[in-house]
């Protein structure tokens, strides 16, 4: 079908990026990592040979905005629910997840919070916003009902809702997607989390609302680490410090956002960038690799991308590449000269 053109795009990116700012002035992302994942492999409990995630490894520091990019079936959701500790009982996790140096099982649940793609599905439809927010605050901080109401109103103000008391009387179906997402963020903030997982929080929103929500997250990030799952490379590039690309359960490339955009090293990353339609200029054909993501049950011994890759070598068929490279950008590919 569509041919993969893996080289054509590097040059223009390199060119356009030279004009860009060299990188975020950076809210100092330092200190001990907030989230540290080592060798995380998730398999089906019934069929341990079916791996949904394989040897996933990365760290997040305070103030960092990490964009995780991947298509459906890449294992994004499994990763999020595993970190949140709400993974399905049909899965078995191997490897380690540490939050602030402590094992996930020993960590207080309120250290991590999550927001989702369709906030209205994650809010109870028959309870009003006030109830759900107050409940969260009450359970977490053991406040009285009156104190909880005040705290809930403060939280809503924090996420840019100016009429908190009016909003607390409303039900999720009476509000827009953007407002529901703000409420979800307020609930997440109630936990004062160290780690915020945002699973495509803006994909279902209009661009202007998306911008508001992203600005809000931007404002909040100094206190926490944000793991931002998205399939919008524009958002990933604009907002994140680092980008990780997940393909078929494996992180195939992790690097500083500007480096990944300027010189994507993995052929799949290149394919992703070339599939983005340009906003202006003369339209060209969009490039997209033929075929689709291999199902977890059909994954072979070699590189998962081998069957769709134009720069495939012999070694790709039988040996799975591992992440390697300079600290700012690592990639799992055998053919780095391609």
């Amino acid at each position: 079908m569509d041919q993969t053109s893996s080289h054509a795009l590097e040059a223009p990116y390199a060119r356009t990026l030279e004009h860009g700012s060299a990188g975020r002035p950076a809210i100092a992302a330092g200190g001990a990592p907030i989230l540290s994942i080592t060798g995380l492999t998730v398999v089906l409990a019934e069929q341990p040979e079916t791996r949904l995630l394989e040897a996933v490894q990365f760290e997040l520091r305070k103030g960092e905005f990490f964009a995780l990019v991947g298509e459906s079936g890449s294992g994004k959701s499994v990763l999020c629910s595993t970190i949140m500790g709400v993974a399905s009982s049909e899965l078995r996790c191997l490897g380690d997840i540490h939050i602030e140096g402590r094992r996930l099982s020993d960590v207080d649940r309120r250290q991590r919070a999550m927001i989702y793609q369709q906030p209205s599905l994650y809010l109870n439809p028959v309870r009003n916003i006030g109830f759900q927010l107050r409940e969260t605050v009450q359970v977490l901080d053991g406040l009285s009902k009156k104190e909880a109401s005040e705290r809930a109103a403060d939280l809503l103000r924090d996420v840019g809702i100016n009429d908190p008391n009016e909003t607390m009387r409303k039900y999720p179906h009476e509000m827009s997607g953007g407002m529901n997402q703000r409420v979800m963020i307020a609930m997440a903030l109630a936990m004062k989390p160290k780690l915020l997982i945002a699973d495509e929080p803006t994909s279902a929103l209009d661009v202007t609302t998306q911008k508001q929500i992203l600005d809000l997250l931007e404002r909040l990030r100094s206190d926490m680490a944000i793991l931002f799952v998205t399939h919008d490379l524009g958002v990933a590039l604009q907002r994140s410090d680092r980008i990780g690309v997940l393909y078929a359960g494996q992180l195939v490339e992790i690097g500083r956002a500007d480096l990944v955009a300027r010189t994507p090293l993995h052929p799949y990353t290149r394919a992703l960038f070339s599939a983005v339609p340009p906003l202006s200029g003369r339209p060209r054909r969009l490039h997209s690799p033929a075929g689709s993501l291999p199902e977890p049950t059909q994954r072979q011994a070699g590189c998962n991308f081998a069957s769709r890759c134009s720069g495939r070598l012999d070694i790709c068929r039988h040996t799975r590449p591992t992440l390697q490279g300079i600290p700012q950008q690592v990639v799992a590919c055998h053919n780095l000269e391609a």
Partner: peptide
Amino acid sequence: RYVLAAFARGIPFWRILIHH
């Protein structure tokens, strides 16, 4: 999903059962 989200917020099970 709202129950999943309530679990993730750390709401106790019996409370989720009765109130959600």
